[in-house]
């Protein structure tokens, strides 16, 4: 194998270029499959990322009944913490709430004279599972002394749906598209084996081992897969940045945070390359499985 590596590689690329159009089509399909797969996976990834941020920042606020005394209000802590799915609850007094509100708008004198009495004591609550947001909100409402609960339910639910849908679609697509790619590559290579059947027959006649005959076709598949992965990765990068810029430039979508591609290019490239190699080698093995039996 060692000494023949160059030979197998040359033969493999010769095979690929001898069927320019089919190889081009196989690479194209591989690129398309990787791109679709990659896009859905990245959507799922970003939805999950936004959801996590939301969980971190957009805590639920549970406002406390104004009629309760300060001590009674603070005493609600254990009851709130006992509600299922509550990860932590922090008591914030009306004075603290006012101060942090004013601090947010510190350039604006307008808020400097705000009276703390218009704020309420509250608990800032984080959840264990954002997926059960509505159930938890309902349970918090049932707690005696809690007057009002506020949560960005719609947004959260949106991200959860996006994540789950994109997740399911990407898994399904990964399976379907990988099969399609393997099939197309396999057919391309079958065409080469058909073209070179005389050569294969001669090689067998003079005593070439099956392994020796097989390698150039494995390399052909590998090359198609790797070309597909490299091109697919480049296009994914462009596409991702285009979408990210679109979101950043849009008024309504600005609250979405898109992970910068520079932060995730490495795993994306790895997955693309791995998928390309698997699809390419899988396709060639499928193509040559039969014809080597003679």
């Amino acid at each position: 194998m060692k000494g023949n590596f160059g030979y197998f590689f040359r033969e493999g690329s010769r095979n690929m270029f001898s069927h320019g159009f089919m190889s081009f089509a196989a690479i194209g399909i591989t690129v398309a499959c990787l791109l679709i797969m990659g896009t859905f996976s990245l959507v799922a990834y970003n939805a999950d990322y936004n959801l996590k941020n939301l969980q971190k920042e957009n805590a639920i606020l549970a406002f406390i009944d104004e009629t309760l005394s300060d001590e009674d209000a603070q005493a609600l802590q254990s009851k709130v913490e006992a509600v299922p799915n509550v990860a932590d609850a922090t008591f914030v007094s009306r004075q603290e709430a006012r101060d942090s509100y004013v601090a947010q708008y510190d350039e604006d004198d307008l808020y400097q004279d705000l009276d703390p009495s218009i704020f309420r004591h509250r608990f800032v609550i984080h959840l264990r599972d954002e997926g059960q947001l509505s159930e938890t909100v309902e349970a918090l409402r049932q707690v005696d002394g809690i007057a009002k609960v506020r949560a960005d339910e719609a947004i959260s639910a949106g991200f959860i749906t996006a994540r789950n849908v994109a997740g399911v679609i990407s898994v399904t697509l990964i399976v379907i598209l990988l099969i399609v790619s393997v099939f197309i590559i396999s057919n391309t290579i079958k065409l080469t084996t058909f073209d070179r059947r005389d050569e294969i027959a001669i090689m067998k006649m003079v005593g070439a081992t099956n392994g020796f005959i097989r390698w150039p076709f494995v390399f052909e598949g590998l090359l198609i897969g790797v070309f597909g992965a490299v091109i697919g990765f480049g296009l994914q990068w462009l596409l991702y940045n285009a979408i990210a810029n679109g979101i950043a430039g849009s008024d309504t979508l600005q609250l979405l945070r898109v992970v910068s591609f520079a932060k995730i290019w490495w795993p994306v490239a790895g997955v693309f390359l791995l998928a390309g190699v698997l699809v390419g080698v899988g396709g060639s093995l499928m193509a040559i499985r039969k014809f080597l039996q003679v």
Binding site: E199, A201, I202, M203, V206, G207, A208, I213
Partner: peptide, 20 residues
């Protein structure tokens, strides 16, 4: 049973190559 798109030399080197 020669390979028609290969030269004489290539036909022979294919046979040699095939056995390493």
């Amino acid at each position: 049973r020669l390979i028609t798109n290969k030269t004489v030399w290539e036909n022979l080197s294919l046979a040699m190559r095939a056995v390493g």
